[in-house]
């Protein structure tokens, strides 16, 4: 219910912002154009409709709140550890796509990303305690092998076989 409340408020603010931006768009009065074709007309309407949807959502949440009803939850149940897993995935993927790609050669960026991803997610706390140095080496080695294979295969298949330009 709280999620819906925040979503509705964000939506109202966003819709209002879009309407304000649409009003700032040029109207080309000096060109004598048909006023119904100005660029801001459609985004303005869409922003207003989104804001109205936000108000409807807010009203619905408020009514449910007053009646102490639970709004049907549509999101799936979380397993323990899902938040750190998502955060690590986000960090790795955004780091690769947002920073490495375009700044490093593609094969190197890809190899580093795959290696780091496998290392992070196949890591077990017991390795740090020194109980499984051999296991750590094995995980690191397998990850490195997969990273090299993926990087080489992807670069070869896309660039040489399908003639696709890589970043």
């Amino acid at each position: 219910m709280r999620k819906d409340l925040i979503t509705s408020l964000v939506l109202i603010a966003f819709g209002a912002g879009v309407v304000a931006e649409a009003l700032r768009m040029p109207r080309y009065d000096h060109l004598g154009i048909n006023p119904y074709t100005v660029p801001g007309i459609v985004p303005g309407f869409l922003g207003a409709i989104l804001a109205v949807f936000g108000v409807l959502m807010l009203a619905r949440t408020a009514i449910a709140w007053r009646r102490h009803e639970a709004v049907p939850a549509t999101a799936a149940d979380d397993e323990p550890g899902s938040v750190p897993r998502v955060l690590f995935t986000l960090g790795l993927t955004l780091g690769y796509g947002g920073l490495l790609v375009g700044n490093l050669p593609f094969w190197l960026a890809t190899g580093l990303f795959v290696w780091a991803f496998l290392l992070v997610f196949e890591w077990r706390p017991s390795y740090a305690a020194g109980a499984g140095t051999a296991a750590l080496v094995r995980v690191g080695g397998t990850a490195l092998l997969e990273a090299v294979l993926v990087s080489a295969a992807v670069t070869f298949v896309f660039q040489r076989v399908f003639l696709v330009t890589l970043p």
């Binding site: 690769y96 990303f113 196949e122 997969e146």
Partner: peptide, 20 residues
Amino acid sequence: IRLMPVIFVLCTIGAFAIAS
């Protein structure tokens, strides 16, 4: 876990390649 980084690499190429 082994598949996801590969899929993400493919997503990156897929997004980039049409307009470079």
